[in-house]
Design a protein around this nucleic acid. Structure first.
Lengths: 130, 130, 130, 130
DNA sequence: GTGGTCTAGACCACA
DNA sequence: GTGGTCTAGACCACA
């Protein structure tokens, strides 16, 4: 599982970790039953405070995505892949919804907003939209 | 100028005020040279502490959108409309960019993202996209 | 007496009025015994709140530069010219002193400060310094 | 970094803090990447309310001189030294410019002004000007 | 531990 | 009346 943490993002580090775990599992990077790196190891790897990783893992456990193996670390649950696909859609959907709600309330014409979105999507996906 | 403040939003109140002033001026709600409601009045109207309004106004002054007339209150500057149109585009554009970047990095197929966006845009603008 | 009021200066308007009166008298623009414009007239001329002019005049009276002619306006006192020459030196001296004290405390080398001063003086007086 | 705060100065406390940070960094007192005293610590040290320090730090952050490391405190940015040297020159230069402009407009002869400046500079730097 | 936001309330200079 | 500054104190998210 790859992590790409930006300490200076507006998104808190623990939330970046959570989302990247969710996105990774939803995309099939990891399968159920697999053991997850320890809090300590991941903290070292990401150069991040262990408390921060611990917090992310706790929330993932509460969500039913991780389960703790009695003192032996964390596993990915059987239901994780399904849960993560749902959660991914929610997370992404909500942020898009908020961005568009703000855009509309700003008074920018719908046409301009649509252009902003389209142009950015093309830039990000590098895909031709025909 | 209409204000719609949500005390429980993740966006700080003073920033909501700033953005709504910017959006309002960018949309032509208020013209340059016009006097702005006083800190105290707006605070009462928004049921918010005067310090919070004052902070928003000070940032707007630093941005060249308001100018303080000593002892008399705040005016909208001559350059405000232009500045606000630029700022609006930046604010809206950045939030859209971040939402889409996250969406793409989540592994959702571009087609799904495009659907999410399109569906939300239609819902918000109530417009028929033919 | 000429006035040059800048509403947006960092120097309060009443203080600009006071200083310009003092500088004017010190420079011999007005002689003792001459009647001064009324608060109301000057306020109109300077497009300034009458309270502001009144405050300036009060301070000038307290300083012995103006004297009120029982309800008939203000005169310049006999001692005004002498007082104003002293005050002018104090006002100018103090602001220069503060500026230089800050400059020195900023850590800029004395040589750099001297250059800044010299260059500005030349610019302002348009005079050749040989 | 030494601080010398005067609660009774006409310059607001938060601005004194800002200027002294700028002057200190411009003079090489602190290097980039170094962590800054915490808001709470500095507030205790300066016997000032934490909010006042926080305001100064926030303006320094907005100026690109400090950067906030979420949950960890403030760092001096890489560009701070350069920014601070520029800012120092601006701050000092502007105050000198204003003082001299006033001096010239006061009607004092250029020669007298030059003497005032020279005498004060000598007093402050204790240096022989030959 | 860190900074960020907000409230309540005081006091001040200015117009 | 206006805004600007400051204090005291609370609460929160984050690491």
């Amino acid at each position: 599982m790859l992590f790409d943490i930006h300490a200076d993002s507006t998104i808190p580090i623990y939330e970046q970790i959570i989302n990247q775990v969710i996105f990774g599992i939803a995309s099939g990077d990891r399968e159920a039953g697999v053991t997850v790196p320890s809090v300590r190891d991941l903290a070292v790897r990401l150069r991040v405070n262990p408390n921060t990783v611990a917090r992310a893992f706790q929330e993932l456990e509460r969500s039913g995505i991780f389960e703790s193996k009695r003192g032996k670390g964390m596993d990915i649950t059987d239901t994780a892949p399904q849960l993560c696909r749902v959660r991914r859609q929610e997370i992404v959907g909500q942020r898009i919804r908020e961005a568009l709600r703000e855009a509309v309330s700003s008074g920018l014409p719908a046409q301009t907003i649509r252009q902003l979105v389209e142009q950015e999507l093309l830039r990000l996906t590098g895909e031709n939209h025909q």
